[in-house]
Amino acid sequence: MKLHPANFAHQYIFTGYGEGYVLINQIRYKQSLIVLPNQLIENWPVLSIAELQFHHFDALITLSPEIILLGTGPKHIFPNQSLLSQITKTGIGIEIMDTGAACRTFNILAEEGRHIAAAVLVQL
């Protein structure tokens, strides 16, 4: 699916997504990654929700976004409840959704000027 940005200047946004990829500022990525409006962390070493652990969020938590949008791939899958508890104890909110929904939600919140992050799983 191709997304059409509304009013974005000099920031990272999702411009499309599909099976096994996401587009950020028209560049195709085929691996999991973390996106903030002003920063891109490529090659996030997570391949599945089952392997996701708290330490995978270390770099992201130090950036203190107000919310993390966790894109779980093509299906909406909840991670381990203890992981969610550990993240919320940091004072950062987390929302779980499929990767397409995370891309769309990220763009809306970024346009509003929110300090958000999307951690998305890109599965082949």
Rank of each mutant, 00 (worst) to 15 (best):
94 I>E: 04
32 S>F: 09
110 A>C: 06
46 V>K: 11
81 Q>Y: 08
47 L>F: 10
85 S>M: 06
26 Q>H: 15
25 N>Y: 09
19 E>Q: 15
70 L>N: 02
33 L>I: 05
46 V>R: 09
109 L>I: 00
91 G>C: 08
104 R>D: 06
84 L>A: 06
9 A>G: 06
32 S>L: 10
118 A>I: 01
9 A>I: 15
93 G>L: 12
20 G>A: 09
79 P>W: 12
59 A>L: 11
96 I>K: 07
85 S>R: 14
36 L>H: 03
119 A>E: 01
58 D>P: 00
82 S>P: 00
58 D>V: 02
115 H>P: 01
26 Q>A: 14
51 E>I: 06
118 A>N: 05
64 S>Y: 04
105 T>V: 02
53 Q>M: 09
35 V>F: 03
80 N>I: 06
83 L>M: 03
22 V>Q: 10
41 I>E: 04
50 A>R: 13
90 T>H: 03
99 T>V: 12
80 N>M: 04
1 M>C: 14
79 P>E: 05
50 A>G: 11
115 H>E: 13
85 S>F: 05
95 E>G: 08
12 Y>T: 06
37 P>K: 05
23 L>E: 14
123 Q>L: 14
81 Q>L: 12
69 L>N: 02
42 E>T: 09
42 E>M: 05
22 V>A: 10
24 I>C: 13
107 N>T: 08
117 A>T: 01
98 D>L: 11
110 A>D: 02
114 R>V: 04
34 I>P: 03
42 E>P: 07
47 L>V: 09
106 F>K: 01
24 I>S: 09
36 L>V: 03
105 T>I: 02
97 M>W: 05
37 P>H: 05
92 I>V: 10
63 L>W: 01
118 A>E: 06
61 I>A: 05
36 L>A: 04
16 G>A: 13
19 E>L: 15
37 P>G: 07
46 V>S: 12
73 G>D: 01
64 S>N: 13
9 A>N: 12
57 F>S: 02
93 G>V: 05
92 I>S: 04
47 L>H: 15
49 I>T: 13
28 R>E: 15
96 I>E: 07
78 F>V: 01
57 F>G: 01
101 A>W: 01
124 L>M: 07
104 R>H: 07
